[in-house]
Design a protein around this nucleic acid. Structure first.
Lengths: 244, 244
DNA sequence: TTTTATTGTCTTTTTAAAAGACAATAAAAA
DNA sequence: TTTTTATTGTCTTTTAAAAAGACAATAAAA
């Protein structure tokens, strides 16, 4: 495992990723179950190499631990309490996994690494669960999407991080056009509305929502979408090519 | 100097403080001139001890380097580019101060410390220049308030940090009631309006501004303020005691 | 008593958001 | 072919909020 290469890493600094997923009109969060006995659920996380920016690091960590690539990741908060360390996690880990006792499999260097207090930079992203490809093979943990409103207990301050990430997500949904990343190249107004309803957890009015979206000035209307349903066919839209 | 106690500090992590100051209806920034030959202007900055939270650290650093105490400090961004290090600064420093050549006064430990890449957490605050007490004695640098619109070149990415801090300040002025910290316990509507005009760098309409402030529901009207001017006396206001 | 400068508050106007209304479909059912 | 159903796109109306305008009420000097 790479964490042994401690001198290539910045010590006491970690990155935690809150990955929101959109599926079937619901908002979820990607949680990894660590490969130990006991319930150790956590956000995808990792450490920063000397020769990469924190943004690059966040992307690499996410790819390594989930397979997700080319995701719009955004920093939102630094968690830096003085007692923010692995001690509680380690204690529970050893309680459930006595065979891991210190100085045993856990080498000395690794123990030193994890015994320190950690500053963590929180990143968040929003992805379409049906569009992205999780890579679960060869990982030392399993991955699962949990409903945002039914999150289990996570290790560390990861529950708190998720709440804070959710606030940042809501604040920036419009500004960063994140919602459009969740949809195919061509989408209907209803589809983009359902994204917003999932993120804000409330209904929007069809007429006013459509006006607001069109007034943003970033959408281009395409041909109609004939679904075969016995009603008027909606238009396809796409992000204007000029829009970043 | 404390930076020699490297094992008590978190390495490669720093904190930079953008302190906005309000005086005579203008917005300023507190800049320190480092005590070397050459123009080395910087934001007040420092490092994080193992046994303090990053918030505590920001406050301590600010106090140590400026004398400012009990200020509302807020984190706003992490700067973590991979080439973010002291090399350019060190090169210029040695160019202007050849007597400091490496392995001379700069001990080995200190050189190692500063040769690494640094992650920096940006904090900002807004204070009333007339109310706060700068302590310039015994410092290894001098302090000066610069007009926000006429900032000189700063070392590192400190100019960029200041711009980013300014955006955060504008976004949060209402929400955090920062503006009221700049005023005496009792203040007039005009005074609070001038704070807003300095921060947003634009005029507000007296009538609508007053309505907006009163509608916030955090102000309590007190007695009138008789200034001696030949016009109607304005009321004093104060923050309602219940308001945090 | 008049004048001047400023304040507090009202009304009017303008703009934006929310709600309501309805014609225009696309395809199934009659 | 016509009617019916479900949904969409776009209007109008209503409501709320922001901006602008208007003016009486001072406090003290002239």
């Amino acid at each position: 495992m790479r964490i042994y290469e401690a001198d290539e890493l910045i010590s006491q600094l970690s990155i935690d990723c809150t990955i929101f997923g959109y599926q079937e009109k619901r908002l979820k969060v990607l949680i990894s179950q660590l490969n130990f006995k006991g319930d150790f659920l956590a956000l995808p996380a990792g450490f920063v190499y000397q020769n990469e920016s924190i943004d690059q690091s966040a992307h690499r960590i996410l790819t390594e631990r989930t397979g997700l690539k080319e995701i719009y990741l955004q920093q939102f908060w630094v968690f830096g309490e003085k007692d923010r360390n692995y001690s509680k996690f380690m204690a529970q880990l050893f309680a459930f996994n006595p065979e891991l006792k210190p100085n045993d499999e856990m080498g000395n260097e690794r123990l030193t690494w994890f015994s320190k207090r950690f500053i963590s930079i929180g990143y968040y992203a929003l992805v379409d669960i049906n569009k992205v490809q999780l890579n679960k093979s060869g990982l030392d943990h399993s991955l699962e999407w949990y409903d945002f409103n039914e999150l289990p207990d996570l290790i560390f301050d990861h529950n708190e991080q998720t709440s804070k990430a959710y606030r940042a997500l809501q604040l920036n949904l419009d500004e960063n056009l994140l919602g459009f990343n969740l949809l195919p190249d061509k989408f209907t107004m209803k589809e983009i509305q359902q994204v917003y309803e999932a993120v804000y957890d409330r209904p929007f009015r069809r007429n006013n929502f459509q006006k607001k979206m069109l007034d943003l000035g970033v959408l281009e209307r395409l041909e109609k979408k004939y679904t075969g349903a016995n009603n008027k066919a909606p238009y396809f839209y796409r992000l204007k090519p000029s829009t970043p």
